[in-house]
C-alpha cells in the first residue's frame, strides 16, 4: 500500500508573528519557515507504517511556492521515498485555500492510487483545519480526523480520535483520509547521512494546470489586524493578597 502525505511549508511555530502595519497581512519576508508540525507527525506515521511492512512507499506532496522544495527534502530526509511539488504561486504571501489544495490532492490521488492519505489536523498559519475533510469529500472516501492512534486492520483502519469529551474509536474503510493530532507520535529528526541521501531522492515539479485545477481564491482578505492586547497586570506578593484582589478588586470569586 502506498501512503500519501501532504506537507505544508509554514512559518516556524517559534517565530513571533508580525502583522504588517498597513493591515495587508502577516510579514513572511525573511522569517524562518518549517514543515507544519502536524505534517511532521503525519510523515513520521507513514514512515513507521513502512518500517512495519504495512506500507510500500511514502509519497509526500506540497503545494505552494517553489521554496516548499525545502520542506519536501526535509520529509525525504526523515524517510519518505518520493516527493511532488505543485508550484501554485510565486508569492510567499499567497496561501492556497484548502478547497483548491484538496482538489489538487484529489488529482494526485487519482494518479498515484494510495491506500491511505495522512494529513495534518491543521496548518498552524491559517488554522483552518479543513483540507483532509475536504479531500475525503471530493474522493468520496471515509475520513478519520484528529487521530491519536491508528491500527490498520485488513481493508479498514481502526482509529482513535481526540474529540471534545475525550476519545472516540471508529473504524474507517480503506482507502481513507486521516488527519493526525499531536499525540499520535513524536517525529524523528533527520540524521545527517539521511539529509545527504534525501538530495538524491526523486522530486517531481508540477503546476496546477497539469492537473486542470483552478486555484483562484474564493475568499478575499479585507484586513489583517493585530488582536486586542491585554493591559499589563500586577504582581501580588502573597496568596492572601491574591485572594483579596480576586474578591474585592476583580469580584470574580
Amino acid at each position: 500500500m502506498k501512503v500519501l502525505v501532504p506537507v505544508k511549508r509554514v512559518i516556524d511555530y517559534n517565530v513571533k508573528v508580525r502583522v504588517k502595519a498597513d493591515g495587508s497581512g502577516v510579514d513572511l519576508a525573511n522569517v524562518k519557515m518549517s514543515m507544519n508540525p502536524f505534517d511532521e507527525i503525519a510523515v513520521e506515521e507513514a514512515i513507521r507504517l513502512k518500517e512495519k511492512g504495512l506500507a510500500t512507499e511514502v509519497v509526500v506532496v506540497s503545494i505552494g511556492v517553489k521554496q516548499a522544495q525545502e520542506t519536501l527534502r526535509n520529509a525525504l530526509a526523515m524517510g519518505a521515498d518520493r516527493a511532488i511539488l505543485i508550484e501554485a504561486t510565486a508569492d510567499v504571501h499567497q496561501d492556497i485555500e484548502p478547497l483548491a489544495v484538496a482538489k489538487l490532492l484529489a488529482a494526485v490521488v487519482k494518479e498515484e492510487g494510495p491506500g491511505l492519505v495522512l494529513c495534518g489536523k491543521q496548518a498552524i498559519d491559517n488554522d483552518l483545519n479543513a483540507t483532509g475533510q475536504m479531500l475525503a469529500a471530493l474522493l468520496g472516501w471515509a475520513q478519520g480526523t484528529f487521530v491519536s492512534e491508528v491500527a490498520l486492520d485488513g481493508d479498514a483502519a481502526k482509529v482513535t480520535r481526540e474529540v471534545d469529551g475525550g476519545l472516540q474509536q471508529i473504524s474507517v474503510k480503506l482507502p481513507a483520509v486521516l488527519t493526525v493530532d499531536l499525540r499520535l507520535n513524536e517525529p524523528r529528526y533527520a540524521s545527517l547521512p539521511n539529509i545527504m541521501k534525501a538530495k538524491a531522492k526523486p522530486l517531481a515539479t508540477k503546476t496546477p494546470a497539469d492537473y486542470g485545477v483552478d486555484v483562484s481564491p474564493r475568499l478575499t482578505v479585507i484586513k489583517t489586524a493585530e488582536p486586542a492586547g491585554r493591559k499589563a497586570g500586577v504582581k501580588v506578593g502573597s496568596v492572601d493578597e491574591l485572594i483579596a484582589k480576586l474578591k474585592d478588586e476583580a469580584g470574580v470569586i
Binding site: 485555500e97 484548502p98 478547497l99 484538496a102 488554522d127 483552518l128 483545519n129 479543513a130 483540507t131 475533510q133 475536504m134 479531500l135 475525503a136 469529500a137 471530493l138 475520513q143 480526523t145 484528529f146 480520535r161 481526540e162 474529540v163 471534545d164 474564493r218 475568499l219
Partner: peptide, 23 residues
C-alpha cells in the same frame, strides 16, 4: 466550532464546492 462540526462541516463545504470558514 466543536470537534463534531470541525469534522463534518469542511466535508459539507467541499461537497458543495465552496470554501469553509472555521472558528
Amino acid at each position: 466550532a466543536t470537534a463534531f462540526n470541525k469534522n463534518v462541516l469542511p466535508r459539507v463545504a467541499a461537497l458543495l464546492d465552496v470554501m469553509v470558514l472555521t472558528d
